[in-house]
Structures are given as C-alpha cells and as structure tokens.
Amino acid sequence: MLHSLFAGHESFSPWWPYLDGTRFSYAFMDARGFGDAIDVEGSYTCDEIASDVLLLADSLGWREFSLIGHSLGGMPVQQVVLKAPERVRKLVGLSPAPANGLGIPDAAYPVLAEAARKVENRRIIIDSSTGGKLSPHWVASWAEQSMKAVGPDAFRGYLDSVNTTDFSAEITGAPLPALVVVGENDPATNADAMNQTWMRH
C-alpha cells in the first residue's frame, strides 16, 4: 500500500480494523521523507519508491504481491510493474497519478510547489481535491497532519517527479488486472481522466 503526497502510511489507518488478515498480508510502506521514514534521505523520486517497494517485498519474503497506490503512490506501483512484471499480480489506483505524469499547468504549479512549506497552500489543495465538500475544520486538520507527515524537501522532490515523469509508452499494454477508484468530487483525477490515462496504460 503506497500513500499520497500529503500523508504517510497512517493515512490508511481507518481501513485497518476491516482488513481480512486471515486471507491476506498487508504492508503499509512509508516513502523516504514520510512518516516513519521522514529522516531517510533519498532522491525523492517515484522510481526510487518503486525500487524500495521491491526491497521491502524481498525483506518480507514476498515473491508475488498486488499493489495499491493512492495519488502519488499510483505512479510507483506502475513502475514496479516495469521493474519486475513477473512479481505483480494486480494493481489498484486510488485517484492515482498516471504514467504520463500529472501535467500540472504552469499557472497552478506555484501553489503546489509552495505547499512544501506552507500549510495554507496544503489547505487550498486538499479543499479543491475534495470538491470543497468537507468542513473547514476537517481540511485544516488534514493539512496540519500533512505538514507533520512529510518533510518539505521530500514533498517538493516527489511533486516534481510525479509531474514530469512519463513512462506511458513503456507500460501501455501491460497484461495484468487493474482497477481505479476516484473521488466523485475530485475535479482533476476523475473517471474521464483515468480512463484516458491510467486504465488505457
């Protein structure tokens, strides 16, 4: 399970009581610069996350596995397929970043880039990506938690990586089951966008 740009592995904690531990084993990985790995230095790229996924799987003795990636995490789960296609059973993307990058417009990029150090920018982005449907208290709380969960250098590095990386030509046609789940109020990562990118790839 790979998290988004705005939170580490604990963002999945609401799921934990409902996961079937009798049928499956789960690994919730923090990328370098997040959560329990907040002090682990690296290049802060999606490709590095993919390599770390394989190292983690090796350390757990998992020859094969399925991958779930949320937002930022949606890109490295696909890169794992490129690195070790024989090991990946299935993919699930939760409002995932596509293989051709986010392609954020130049006019919008400064707001995202400055969110590396400004909690008010994180509030703006969180509020926008949830369609402005959630309470200001919830948005503010999530933004505050996000500031604690990811360091500024890691935030900016991963943002640049997920925006400029494009390996869509290499992964298109990968023969494995894939599912995308989107938020109905997300104006950018919606079903149309995912059908044109992630699912097509």
Rank of each mutant, 00 (worst) to 15 (best):
S71A: 15
Q196C: 00
W16P: 02
E64T: 12
A149G: 03
K133S: 11
S129R: 06
A140W: 05
L55T: 14
I124R: 09
A149D: 14
S59I: 01
V182M: 13
N121K: 12
F28R: 01
S95K: 00
G183S: 03
Q79K: 09
S141C: 00
H201M: 05
A108F: 07
V92S: 08
T172S: 10
P187Y: 03
P14R: 06
G42E: 11
L82K: 01
L179T: 15
V81R: 02
G183K: 04
K90M: 08
V77R: 02
P177K: 04
L134H: 14
H137K: 13
N163I: 06
N100D: 10
G61M: 05
A188N: 09
H70F: 10
N100K: 13
N195M: 12
R117F: 00
M147F: 14
E184T: 10
Q79M: 13
A143G: 09
V150K: 06
C46D: 14
S11E: 14
A97K: 04
E86Q: 15
T164Y: 09
Q145H: 12
A174V: 12
H201Y: 06
S168N: 00
L54A: 04
L72N: 06
G151A: 03
K83A: 15
S168R: 13
A31E: 09
P76I: 07
L55H: 09
S11F: 09
V40D: 13
V150H: 06
F12Y: 14
E114M: 08
Y18E: 10
V180E: 12
G101R: 03
M194V: 11
V92Q: 03
L72F: 14
A154P: 01
M75C: 03
D36N: 05
G131F: 11
G151L: 07
F155I: 02
Y109P: 01
L176E: 14
L82Q: 06
A193Q: 10
F28C: 06
F34P: 01
Q79E: 15
P98R: 09
D160V: 04
D36H: 06
N100I: 05
E184H: 03
S4G: 15
D127G: 04
K118L: 13
A154C: 01
G8I: 05
A115P: 03
A188R: 05
S146H: 05
W16S: 02
R117L: 00
G69M: 11
S66V: 14
G69I: 11
I171K: 07
F34T: 08
P110Y: 06
G151D: 14
A31G: 03
L56K: 02
F155L: 03
A174K: 00
G183Y: 04
S95Q: 04
K90P: 00
M194K: 11
A107D: 12
L134I: 04
S66A: 15
S141P: 00
D106S: 07
G61F: 12
A97V: 15
F155G: 01
G173S: 02
D52F: 02
